[in-house]
Simulated assay, not measured.
Amino acid sequence: MSDLSKVPVTIVTGFLGAGKTTLISHLIRTAKGRRLAVVVNEFGTLGVDGDILRGCAIPDCPAENIVELANGCICCTVADDFIPTVEMLLRLDPRPDHILIETSGLALPKPLLKAFDWPAIRSRITVDGVITLADAEAVAAGRFAPDLAAVDAQRNADPSIDHDTPLAEVFEDQLACADLVLLTKCDLAGPEGIAAARAAIAAEMSRPIPVIELVDGVVDPRIVLGLGAAAEDDIAARPSHHDGEDDHEHDDFDSIVVNCGEIADPAGLEARIEALASRGDVLRIKGFAAVSGKPMRLLVQAVGARVRTNYDRLWRTDEPRGSRLVVIAERDRLDPAVIEAALIG
């Protein structure tokens, strides 16, 4: 790659827990000599995904090439966070062959796409493609869609009412901006769920976009890297619920970090998370737990009532042992006292 060539950038978007970090971890391991850099955006203050990805670092994507931007959404902090980060990555020696950007699960990709027209970077990078991940099980269950029959009835009564839920708007905007949709968690959805998810996605698409099924983020890098979409030149074809607005705010969502100390019973923590999510109070929980008598850190990942845990690495001597979980929810359902009581037990 010559110094005058543009560095391709792939935007990886998708709702909370769709598998973005799992996909990028796979791409890092299978890049086959391609020098990568990664920007990870966290909605909450506790960095989880960046820590996971730094654990996957290899010579072609060392830890210093993995940058985490926490406590916010890069589609809202372009000038302060995103542009300086991209400029820093472009100054690396050797320069990355490809940059991956993992948005937060609540990000709208179109404002980020517009940022690539900024004078400081527009002649130096190109958006190779926008990859949207969609959780097949969640889409098939209708977690992002309102009750269509009820909506139609209310529209007939009062067409001026905006019936789209905040979840539906985020999901629809992420699909509308895509050059490729990866349908994840297909092993959990089953054939009927996959068919239902494909139908729901097709109903939202304004242009023909390929949809590929995968499990555990496993996909040939040649499929997702090298699309050559130059998406920054095709913004008008990617409609958004927020077109014409000066700012994109996340007033509908919020997050807190719950400190649980050491825990003795991981299964009990999983049960408490499932019970909390089953009431509809939270969208996403992720973080790390210290288990009494265990030298390894327990990684906790929950999407709705679906909870997964695994021991990912030894606790370092320079970090305090403890359990910290970031909880993301719709703002009107995020009661810190109730959530802390439910999780701590």
Rank of each mutant, 00 (worst) to 15 (best):
Ala277Ser: 10
Asn41Pro: 07
Trp118Leu: 06
Asp234Asn: 13
Asn156Thr: 08
Glu270Asp: 14
His241Glu: 00
Ala136Gly: 10
Gly190Thr: 14
Pro8Asn: 10
Thr13Ser: 12
Leu183Arg: 04
Ile99Asn: 05
Pro208Gly: 00
Ala168Glu: 15
Asp252Phe: 09
Asp3Phe: 14
Pro295His: 09
Thr317Pro: 00
Ala337Arg: 14
Gly17Lys: 02
Pro191Cys: 11
Glu169Gly: 04
Ile344Asn: 04
Cys75Lys: 10
Leu92His: 15
Glu102His: 04
Val215Met: 06
Asn310Cys: 02
Ile212Lys: 12
Phe288Leu: 01
Asp135Lys: 10
Thr317Met: 10
Glu249Thr: 15
Arg333Lys: 15
Leu188Trp: 05
Leu100Met: 11
Asn65Met: 04
Lys185Trp: 13
Pro119Ala: 10
Gln301Ser: 14
Ala107Met: 07
Asp254Tyr: 04
Leu89Arg: 13
Cys260Val: 05
Val291Thr: 07
Phe43Ala: 06
Ala230Leu: 07
Ala120Asn: 02
Ile209Phe: 01
Glu64Asp: 15
Met205Glu: 06
Asp254Thr: 12
Val211Thr: 14
Ala195Gln: 13
Pro84Ser: 12
Lys32Phe: 05
Ala231Leu: 05
Ile11Asn: 10
Ala134His: 06
Ala136Trp: 03
Arg207Gln: 08
Val326His: 01
Ala157Thr: 04
Leu276Arg: 07
Ile223Ala: 09
Val9Thr: 03
Val211Asp: 03
Glu204His: 08
Val218Arg: 15
Val291Trp: 12
Leu113Met: 15
Gln174Glu: 12
Asp312Val: 14
